[in-house]
Design a protein around this nucleic acid. Sequence first.
DNA 1: TTGTATGCGTTATCAT
DNA 2: ATGATAACGCATACAA
Lengths: 337, 337
Amino acid sequence: MVTIKMIAKKCGFSAATVSKALNGAPDISAETAETIRNIAAEMGYMPNSAARMLKTSRSYFFGVLFEDASNKGLTHVFFSQILNSFKHRAEELGYDICFISDRMGGREISYVEHARYRNCDGVIIASVDYTEHAVTDLANSGIPTVAIDYEFTSCGSIQSDNLGGMEALVRYIHSMGHRKIAYIHGEDTAVTRNRVASFCRTCAALGLEIPESYLIPSIYTNPDLSALYTKQLLELPDPPTCILYPDDISYIGGMNQIEKMGLSIPEDISVAGYDGADVSQMLRPRLTTLKQDAVRMGELAAEELARAVEEGRTYIPGRIVVPGELILGGTVKNLAP
Amino acid sequence: MVTIKMIAKKCGFSAATVSKALNGAPDISAETAETIRNIAAEMGYMPNSAARMLKTSRSYFFGVLFEDASNKGLTHVFFSQILNSFKHRAEELGYDICFISDRMGGREISYVEHARYRNCDGVIIASVDYTEHAVTDLANSGIPTVAIDYEFTSCGSIQSDNLGGMEALVRYIHSMGHRKIAYIHGEDTAVTRNRVASFCRTCAALGLEIPESYLIPSIYTNPDLSALYTKQLLELPDPPTCILYPDDISYIGGMNQIEKMGLSIPEDISVAGYDGADVSQMLRPRLTTLKQDAVRMGELAAEELARAVEEGRTYIPGRIVVPGELILGGTVKNLAP
DNA sequence: TTGTATGCGTTATCAT
DNA sequence: ATGATAACGCATACAA
């Protein structure tokens, strides 16, 4: 491994001068800087991040906390998209990614400890149970933090526009003449509550009466449950004309059930989804759905976190709401031509 | 930040003694060790990985190189599954994950440089163009390396059993009475070549003549292309009775095309897939497919890499082939009852 | 059993 | 413009 000392020896300058030259310090003559940089490159020099980290207490690591309840982790479609674009943007900004878990080898450690151990300059929190103490401790640890789809005091926040998205979706369905809209929704989380609230509020604003039986708590990405509830809905004395699903996978469960009952989409029953832009767009007809902008969310999260890190004590947490996009597929029938 | 020195001051012992006690050195009395550990815990001590790294030149980082051609990165289903289980197992073994990219901030750097900069103890290579110089350089850098689905001399290797898997799949289809089997396969990679070779060899062994027109090069996860080729196949003067797709998404494209032509699966045309265990299992009928054991592959990769790191110069690269599982869905009709 | 001294590679301060 | 020196936090060889 080639170090600054070795370069110093080779080129006759001192280690201090070499360090400065390599870091582009202003008090080094252009000529020496040039010479030193050439020799360093020639020798294949790479700085040692550990030494630099120790000296400057800056790691250029973004910690990533990414533990969802369903334990899908990195295979979770929406979050893997966010993470992917977060990673790209972070790299552009000069940061590497370091996952924060709750164990180091055999031992259990807290997220805060893990982040401190690795000297993370900042941390992004996504896809977790935000009420967990281990999580709130991290958010309050003083380490610059940005949360996805959640707000902590004094932390940055990147949120999907669940309120606006759901409103747009419901208004569209209403504009297609539907008055009886059911919503099979995901388990109780802050995000779900927002969507449900927006659903109810928008329906109310449109003068729609939504009976209790139309609002069904299910579980995200569970096709069996959504199939079951679809059946329930369709067997109601007064069934809905349109069913909303919480995600692509739930939709597929519902779709199977609908076909099984000999009905077809959208002739006999209309459907729409949320947070779907993957599989559901390959099926025919294409699902009408509200696509969240995961890519933009990841980018913004990286930029916000970089800002939090670099502004330090003067950082004022940003609260960014990222709009989604209404994708008009072919699953909502026009009842009012 | 609380350091060893601070603990030393507080408890009256020297820094060396504290360090030893905390690391469970044998030459410290049980009593002092106990005392020191208590005080350390009380003070909320966490070692500084940068300092430790610098001193021991061990980072307990596994570098992860994960750049696929299609740029899906972490959203690639198969590889995200591998990465997820790799991450879990690595954490159990005491390692954190650090992504290796080809840039640091604005500057371009090589993978090797990146891995060295972060002092990665070892590196896993997955989902890349293995012929790229940047990649082979990494594999030959001397850093302990394990590759997924590829073999480098002196690197460990975890491979999906593409030969055995494809053979099992073809033999099963043959056992159902099919003699005219077509294969729409992915773009040219080492993995694809293995599958195609095994497909051809198995067909030959079974005495099946596969015309050129039955073997179609497509692109992975491209539903439009697979739809197009499905149409081509079905319009052949002598069409196949069963079509093999390279993945779930390609299958969905084919499925749509089949339905569009008024045919049904498996009554009119049988189909099967490869590397599918996600969406295709939620559709009805369930796709008959050969599921790769991504979870096991990730675990094994972590274990193999840990071994490579810990055995150092005495490490003899392991070549592990991980069998898949034939999932019997309902898309292959029995032609020979 | 415990403590002293040293150095890992780097950067920052202060002289020169 | 350049260099000598110290220090970051830790682990270790060796002395006590």
